[in-house]
Amino acid sequence: MSFDVDVERRIGNADIACRFSAEGGLTVLFGPSGAGKTSTLNMIAGLLRPDRGRIVVDGHILFDSASGIDVAVEKRRVGYVFQDPRLFPHKTVAANLLYGRRDNADTSEFDRIIDILGIGHLMERWPRTLSGGEARRVAIGRALLSDPAFLLLDEPLSSLDRPRREEIMVLIERMRDELGLPILMVTHDSEEANRLGTRTISV
């Protein structure tokens, strides 16, 4: 139940270096825009290759430049909720939710997650017809249903109005307290960081 991250990567003229260790619960990566928070998440997810470093989650080595380990994105069992929902536009909400589902997954888990998120009534809808808050919840559901070993949340509350923010915040608190997955969340909002984070790491 832990993150152990030490990565370096040069993007353009900027050097991104991030180093932290965190036990279970929800860890907030806090800092101004452009500090490399999203890049760090991308490196942990395997979408961006660090120039040097080591990423260990829950005792599993995902990346280690010293020993040449670089686990493929699809094998990292990451539940990544991107800043934009990134729902597949040619698939219904139900098909989006089931995209990452494993064959042996049990249906009670599916029902429970759909229930927590309150998206049962959206199943037949197309992503373009969803509101921002609905799309965000579906994106969270899609990530959770892929049976992830850990969660990455990139500014999950951005571009939502007040009531929606509150709704998603309550949801994140439930995920933190009920699912038992290590969560790494990026934000630049100190209020969010204080309320949701088990601990906060400034970048």
Partner: peptide
């Protein structure tokens, strides 16, 4: 949108499945 392909990868789809789906 390449970002959709990235999202599919994080959901456990290998390059072949990302291409097909």
């Amino acid at each position: 949108d390449r970002r959709l392909e990235q999202a599919a990868r994080t959901l456990g789809a290998g390059p072949g499945r990302v291409f097909r789906t």
